[in-house]
Design a protein around this nucleic acid. Structure first.
Lengths: 204, 204
DNA sequence: GACAATAGTTAACAGTGCTAACTATTATAA
DNA sequence: TTATAATAGTTAGCACTGTTAACTATTGTC
C-alpha cells in the first residue's frame, strides 16, 4: 500500500466517521440540534475541518440521507424475510415490510426524506439524486415487472406502477411517523388495508 | 363596542398580520430564511413583540401551518368545481383536485406539512392538531361514507378508508413536490393512475 | 534540506431564538 | 382627577448557528 493509498483511506475513514456521527446526532438530538459544531465536538476536530470533506451542511445532509436510505433498504430486506416463489405474495410482503420498517425506525425514515426539506427551499429545485434511492426504485420496478409478467398486474409501464406504489406507501408511513395522532388506534389495520388497496387497485 | 372589545380586535389584527407576513416570508424566502427578526422587520415591530402573541417559533409555525391548510382547502374546493350528483364521480374529481392543487401551490402545500418536521424532533411527539386538518378529514370521511352508502366502496370503517386515501394522495403529492426528479415526465398520467388505483382498490 | 501540498487550526462575521429587565402607554378604581 | 395596576412594546444581551479567510503545522516529494 502506497502512502497515497493510505492517505486516501484515512480520508475516507474520517469522512465516514463524520457521516456516522452526524446520523447519530440526528437520531439522538433531532433535526434542530444537529450542528456542525456538535459534530466536530464528537469527533474531536475543529468545526471547519468538516468543510474539507463536505461543501456545506446541505451537502452533508444529503450524504447522511443516502447512507440512511441504504440502512433502510437493509432493514427492509430483513423484514421481508425468506424469498417467495409467488411474485404477488412477495409484493404484498414487501409492501407491508416497507411501512413496518419505517415505523420501526421512524427517525431513520424521517432522515431519509428530511434532507429534501432543507434543500434550496426557495426554488424547490433540488438536484441531488441519492444512489440508494435509485437502487430501491430499480428493485421495486423489478418486482412490479414480475407481477405483470405473471399476469397479476395490469400491463402498464412498470416505472409508473412502481412510483404509484412507492408514493402510497410513503404517504402512509410518513403521516404515521410525523403525526402521532394519525391513525393512532388502527395502524396495523391500516398497514394491511394499504397493501390490499394497492394490490387490488393494480390487479388485472 | 367597548374599549376591551376594540383592544381585543386590535390584538387579533396584529396576530393575524404576523401570521400573514410569516407565510409570505416562508413562500418568498423559504424555510431556512424565515426568522423571527425578519418577520418583525416586515411588520415594523421589535422581534420580541412576536413572543407576546406566540409562545415560540414552533407555535407560530403551527399557526401558519393551520392557516395554510385552510387556504389549501379553499383551493381544492375551487379545483373540484361544481357539485356532482354521483358520489364516485365526485370522489374521483376530488382525488385529482387534491394532487393538482398541491402541485399548483407547492410552497403552500409544503408549509402545511413542514411544521411537523420542526416539532420536537427528538421525541417525535407533536401534540398539535390543526383545526383545518381535522375539518378536511371530516369532509373526506363524509365523501367516503357517501360512496359506501351508494354501494361503490367496501363496507369498511369510513375513517380507515379516508386515512388510506389521504395517505396515498399525500405520498404522491409530497414526493412530486419535494423531489423534482420524481416522475418528471409522467406527472399527469400518474395523477390519473393514482386516482384510479385508489378507487379500484376500494371498490366493492 | 528546500519546496509544496495537505490537513487542520483560530478568529471572526453576520445571523439565529429567546429571556430578563425595562419603559411607556393606557384603563380602572379611589 | 389622580394614583394604581395592567398591558404592550422596547432594548440589551446570552448562547448558539453556518461559513469564510487567513493562518500553522505536518507531511511527502524533489
Amino acid at each position: 500500500m502506497s502512502i497515497q493509498e493510505r492517505k486516501e483511506i484515512e480520508k475516507q475513514e474520517l469522512r465516514q466517521k463524520i457521516v456516522d456521527v452526524a446520523i447519530e446526532l440526528f437520531i439522538d438530538e433531532g433535526f434542530e440540534n444537529l450542528s456542525m459544531r456538535k459534530i466536530a465536538d464528537k469527533i474531536n476536530y475543529s468545526p471547519t475541518t468538516i468543510y474539507n470533506y463536505f461543501k456545506d451542511k446541505t451537502d452533508l445532509m444529503f450524504q447522511i440521507m443516502n447512507e440512511s436510505f441504504g440502512r433502510f433498504l437493509v432493514n427492509i430486506e430483513k423484514a421481508i424475510g425468506e424469498e417467495s416463489s409467488d411474485p404477488l405474495e412477495a409484493m404484498k410482503r414487501g409492501l407491508k415490510a416497507y411501512i413496518q420498517t419505517g415505523l420501526d425506525h421512524p427517525k431513520n425514515y424521517r432522515l431519509i426524506f428530511s434532507a429534501c426539506t432543507r434543500c434550496n427551499e426557495v426554488e424547490l429545485e433540488c438536484h441531488h439524486k441519492t444512489e440508494n434511492g435509485e437502487k430501491a426504485l430499480e428493485q421495486l420496478i423489478g418486482a412490479v415487472t414480475e407481477c405483470i409478467n405473471h399476469g397479476y398486474f395490469t400491463k402498464k409501464d412498470p416505472l409508473d406502477l412502481a412510483q404509484l406504489i412507492w408514493a402510497a406507501l410513503h404517504g402512509l408511513t410518513i403521516l404515521m411517523i410525523e403525526n402521532p395522532h394519525f391513525a393512532i388506534n388502527n395502524r396495523d389495520q391500516l398497514k394491511e388495508d394499504m397493501a390490499n388497496m394497492i394490490i387490488r387497485g393494480l390487479k388485472i
